[in-house]
């Protein structure tokens, strides 16, 4: 392996690109769990939105705005459906979420055939990808800027959203009410809050974030749609949300970790390690991260109980 500046800068650059979809989805999951609903359908929402971004991209002659709008709208529809089943019909969030994830793969393939008469992969020269933004400091620090080439406005937006969501949840009245619902639904209800309405709206809006993530998948680094394009990123985002304790900053750090593991995985492909081994790195990393976090948490809890027992005696 070569450890020189270019190499590291390339890893960083690729990490930054890998992070955003996971980050956006784990922010969506965080918003939902802060409001007391369990959302595991990010995988499906991402797939659907990635697909409709490409469809509209193709038929509108490469309109970025329309593509993004279509992606976000389709993801919101799916999220609203999910919310309806979970919140109104009180269906099992796990089963409904998994149904949406698996059905999304079928829906996209089905319509890929309807629209493009192909299954599996769709790529076309008329498709227009998101514009890569040249960093404003590109001339002053070309080396540093290298790492930021290849990033689109959605990547930057995802970082800004971390801050925005943090401020929303912890500084605004509405955010504080949502968190209160997540902490104690009964109490919020007893104080006259329309809990289900808030949850429904939050879940539907979380679809916007997954929609943006979907756009990144099909119009970011590459411009194409391939079956199962989300490839488990939605599940990894779910774990990132757990590890980050649903706090925007924590979720950001966890996503960063998974972004690194993905980018390291894809970089190691160029070495003698085989593709299948490197491709499984993010998933193994997810399991390991879960284990380490649990050990840490257990130690903390044991310590607390021990201390309080001492106080008790």
């Amino acid at each position: 392996m070569i450890f020189n500046f270019e190499y590291i800068s390339a890893i960083i650059s690729s990490t930054l690109r890998m992070v955003s979809p996971i980050l956006l989805c784990s922010l969506a999951a965080a918003l939902c769990s802060k409001t007391g609903v369990f959302n595991i359908a990010m995988e499906g929402c991402m797939m659907i939105s990635a697909f409709f971004a490409i469809v509209v991209n193709y038929f509108s002659g490469g309109s970025i705005i329309l593509s993004v709008l279509a992606a976000v709208a389709s993801s919101m529809v799916v999220s609203a459906l999910l919310a309806f089943f979970i919140i109104k019909l009180k269906a099992s969030p796990v089963v409904v979420g998994m149904s949406i994830n698996t059905a999304s793969s079928a829906v996209t393939t089905f319509f890929m055939y309807i629209f493009f008469k192909t299954k599996g992969l769709f790529q076309h020269p008329d498709l227009v990808g998101l514009k890569k933004i040249t960093p404003f400091f590109a001339e002053a620090f070309p080396e540093l800027a290298q790492m930021f080439f290849g990033l689109t406005f959605i990547d930057y937006l995802s970082w800004i959203l971390v801050i925005v969501i943090y401020i929303f949840l912890y500084k605004t009245v509405l955010g504080y009410r949502l968190r209160a619902i997540g902490i104690n639904q009964e109490a919020a209800k007893s104080l006259g809050t329309p809990v289900e309405k808030y949850q429904f709206i939050t879940m539907t809006l979380s679809g916007v974030l997954c929609g943006l993530a979907g756009v990144l998948l099909s119009m970011g680094s590459v411009t194409l749609f391939i079956q199962n394009i989300a490839s488990g990123k939605g599940y990894i985002a779910m774990t990132a949300n757990n590890l980050g304790k649903s706090h925007p900053i924590g979720v950001f750090l966890a996503s960063l970790f998974f972004g690194v593991s993905q980018s390291v995985g894809s970089f190691l492909q160029q070495t003698q390690l085989k593709g299948q081994i490197t491709a499984s790195i993010p998933y193994v990393a997810t399991i390991l991260a879960t284990i380490f976090e649990s050990i840490r948490y257990k130690r903390l809890k044991e310590k607390r109980i021990k201390e309080s027992m001492k106080l008790g005696n």
Binding site: F85, K90, S92, M98, S99, T102, A106
Partner: peptide, 25 residues
């Protein structure tokens, strides 16, 4: 007709099947 239609049907069935837990509650 793309055969994925059956997976879509299956997904809808699964979603509906779990909604019952609720409606019965």
């Amino acid at each position: 007709i793309p055969s994925e239609i059956t997976l879509i049907i299956q997904g809808i069935i699964t979603m509906l099947v779990t909604a019952k837990f609720v409606i019965k509650l």
